[in-house]
Design a protein around this nucleic acid. Structure first.
Lengths: 97, 97
DNA sequence: TAAGTATATAAATACATCATTATATATTGG
DNA sequence: CCAATATATAATGATGTATTTATATACTTA
C-alpha cells in the first residue's frame, strides 16, 4: 500500500487523533498515554503500532518505559489545515439556512 | 462524528484518492469518472456519495448528467503535504540502509 | 408516451478494522 | 533469581467498509 494512503488510514480514527493531540507538546511514554486516552493498555498499544507502522510515530526505549513521539511535525500542519477545511464547511452549511 | 474525522475517512481509500486526482483540473461528470476509475458505475457512485457526505465534493445536475467537483481546493494542499510527508519518510527509511 | 441513457439506491457478500481478553516479553528492584 | 511493572502480541468477536448484482429514478429524444 502506498505510504500516503497508510498515513491517511492511520489518521482516520478518533483514538489515534487523540493520541496525536496528546503528543503535540513532545514525547510521552505509554504509561502516560494510556490513562489520558482512557481505554485499555492493549488497545492503546495497538493504536500506537498502527501509527508507528505508518511512520507517523517513532518510539524510544528508556528503562522499563517506551516513549513515543512524532516523526515529522508537518503532520500537525496537515491536521490543522483539515480542521480549518472542516470548520469552513460547517460554516457554509450553517450560512445556507 | 466530527467532520474532520469524516473527511479523513473519506480520503482514506485508493479509489477515492484517484477520483480526487481526476477532479484536480475541474468538474467532471460521472460518465467521465467511471471509465477513468475503471470499476462499476455503481461502485463509483457510492464512492462519490461518501465524498459528498464528507463535504469534500458537491454535484450539479445538467441534463442527464451529474457533474462533481471539489468544494474546497485547500484539500489538495493538504493531500500534497501528505504526499511530501510520505516521500520524506521513505527517503529517511532508505538513507538508513 | 415509450425507449434509451445517466445515475442512484438496495441488498448481499466479502473483507478490513476495532475492542476485548488472555498471554508473552522485557526490565528493574529486592 | 523472583516478583512486580511496563509494554507488546495473539486470538476472538463485533462492527464497519468495499464490491457486486440487481433494480429504481430521472431526464431526453424519437
Amino acid at each position: 500500500m502506498h505510504l500516503k494512503l497508510r498515513i491517511l488510514k492511520a489518521l482516520s480514527d478518533e483514538t489515534r487523533l487523540n493520541i496525536l493531540e496528546f503528543l503535540r507538546d513532545g514525547e510521552k511514554c505509554v504509561c502516560e498515554i494510556v490513562p489520558y486516552i482512557g481505554t485499555s493498555q492493549s488497545n492503546v498499544s495497538q493504536h500506537l503500532r498502527i501509527l508507528k507502522d505508518a511512520n507517523v510515530l517513532t518510539d524510544r526505549k528508556e528503562g522499563k518505559s517506551i516513549y513515543y513521539s512524532i516523526v515529522d511535525g508537518d503532520i500537525y500542519r496537515c491536521l490543522d489545515d483539515l480542521e480549518g477545511i472542516a470548520e469552513n464547511a460547517v460554516r457554509r452549511l450553517l450560512e445556507i439556512y
